[in-house]
Design a protein around this nucleic acid. Structure first.
Lengths: 100, 100
DNA sequence: TTGCTATATAGTAATATGCTGATATATCTA
DNA sequence: TAGATATATCAGCATATTACTATATAGCAA
């Protein structure tokens, strides 16, 4: 069976993206980096909460960031979450097609 | 951008498996169904909490169950979580290989 | 320096989650 | 039926998460 520490780590990563707004943020960053202000506008959330979520995902290793002048750009650091999202979105498509 | 309701649903599914013990349960069920008692023994958790987690994942559509006599067998209902796990475990393998 | 924009953080309240011990329910066997 | 086994559920507590407001910090430009 899966090692306990690995299970904990995997659960952390999953929890980091298991939130509607955070899924959207990750989706936004798939094509490339984006600064906080643009992200805030794109997801239509308050600045504070978006900043908190960005920091949270950075803590968990999902995102990374760099500052350029007064702006901070976030990007996907853990590229595997992209594949994760691919799996999930495929899943949604399938569900649509095979709706019970 | 991803639809809001889909985002909520995806987040729910992710949250359902984003827990060390629940990841183990799902892993156990990949080869096929298993009854509650065997699951409890395999994950070395208390009966009550395992039952709660099984029910929770069933609620979220991740698992399904059938009763056979006095035993209840759980199986993976949402097959896409298997692919999800594949992604994640591949990710862990890669991490091991490219440890910074 | 002042003021402006961009981002982060602190404090807090509401809600959700995780776990426990106890109990309830269902099924089987004698 | 009684007793044993299998599973589910309840009540309660501790902790975690979420989201909010307000405030703090960082960089830029005048």
């Amino acid at each position: 069976m899966i090692d306990n520490n690995i299970a904990k780590h995997v659960a952390e990563v999953l929890k980091a993206v298991a939130h509607p707004a955070r899924l959207k943020i990750v989706e936004l960053l798939v094509p490339g980096e984006m600064n906080v202000g643009d992200i805030v506008r794109a997801v239509s959330e308050k600045q504070a909460i978006t900043s908190q979520q960005l920091n949270m995902m950075k803590d968990k290793g999902v995102l990374g960031s760099r500052r350029d002048g007064s702006k901070v750009y976030y990007h996907i650091e853990n590229k595997n979450v992209i594949r994760l999202l691919d799996c999930i979105y495929d899943h949604c498509e399938q569900e649509k097609g095979t709706r019970r």
